[in-house]
Simulated assay, not measured.
Amino acid sequence: MKTHVVALLLACLATAASGQSFYIDWSKPNPVSGPPTIASLKREGLVKNSNAVTKELYFRYNLDEVNSNHRAQLCMSLCWLLFPGEDNPFDREGQILYGGAALPIYVDLTTNSYEGKSTVKVTLFDKTDTTDKLDFDVQFVVDENTSVGRIEDVGVTIGPNPTAEVLSLTGEALSSVTSVSLYDMQGNIIRSYGVPMGSNVRYTLDGVASGTYRLVLTMHDGSLRGSAVTVAR
């Protein structure tokens, strides 16, 4: 918590010194790591406007350091797949950031089951004043040796397991979870449940075929926790 506060203060000081009027409060540090069996990796944050003037934000990007087997997208109120080559920022819809407000942002990497490193470089800028800009990069490390601990190791219980229709998660550590996802054993994402609301949550499994799956929690620090669950009908 203390480290996060210090990083936020440094970001604000840098913003004030440069005349830049917005910054990103990231939920996790670089790099974001995971094994290739995880279909996608994500870094999330909030773009925050530090003054009262409304901004219309656009972005440029560079994929020179993205693994050719990986695919990236950037999302704010809309999502855009990012393709190599020339790019015109104004082909995309501008994102309105009101004075003193915040706008969710995330960069997502689809691994396609390939290992490797990828860095997505982005420049976020205001249409009215293009010198009011923010350069940032999001780094991904996809490695088979990335450690994925068990969900139970952080004090979260799963039940019932096996289950037919509903899966319940219980534990105070759910407050440190940024996403809950269900994967098949080939690494394809079957369900994405988002941020758990509370310390006792229930997820429906309607339409999920009988079989063994992997439930994965992405923690606030970017680490992953996963455990096998069985759907039996």
Rank of each mutant, 00 (worst) to 15 (best):
H4Y: 15
V5Y: 12
V5E: 15
V6P: 00
A7G: 09
L8Y: 10
A11D: 06
L13P: 03
A14R: 15
A14K: 10
Q20N: 12
Q20D: 15
Y23C: 06
D25I: 11
S27T: 10
K28H: 09
K28P: 05
P29G: 06
N30T: 00
V32H: 03
S33F: 04
G34Y: 02
S40F: 05
E44T: 07
E44P: 06
G45D: 04
K48F: 11
K48S: 09
S50M: 14
N51E: 11
V53Y: 12
Y58G: 01
F59G: 01
F59T: 00
N62V: 12
L63T: 05
N69F: 08
N69Y: 13
R71C: 06
R71L: 05
L74H: 07
C75E: 06
M76Q: 10
S77Y: 14
S77V: 13
W80N: 04
W80F: 10
P84R: 09
N88Y: 11
E93I: 13
L97G: 06
Y98P: 00
Y98A: 14
G100S: 07
A101Q: 09
V107C: 02
D108L: 05
L109V: 07
T110W: 11
T111H: 07
T111K: 03
N112E: 11
Y114I: 04
G116A: 01
V122D: 02
T123H: 03
L124G: 00
F125S: 04
D126V: 03
K127V: 12
L134C: 05
Q139P: 05
V141L: 02
V141S: 04
V142G: 11
S147K: 15
S147E: 12
V148E: 12
V154R: 02
G155V: 14
V156Y: 03
I158L: 15
G159N: 11
P160W: 06
N161V: 06
N161K: 12
N161H: 06
P162E: 03
E165S: 13
L169E: 06
G171N: 04
A173T: 09
S176Q: 13
V177F: 02
S181T: 12
S181I: 10
Y183T: 01
Y183Q: 03
D184Y: 07
D184S: 03
M185G: 08
N188M: 07
I189N: 05
S192I: 07
V195T: 15
P196H: 00
M197Q: 14
N200L: 10
D206F: 07
D206A: 08
D206S: 12
G211F: 05
T212Y: 12
T212Q: 15
R214E: 11
V216N: 05
L217D: 05
H220W: 15
G222F: 00
G222C: 01
L224D: 04
R225Y: 07
V229Q: 02
T230V: 09
T230I: 13
T230S: 14
A232D: 14
R233M: 07
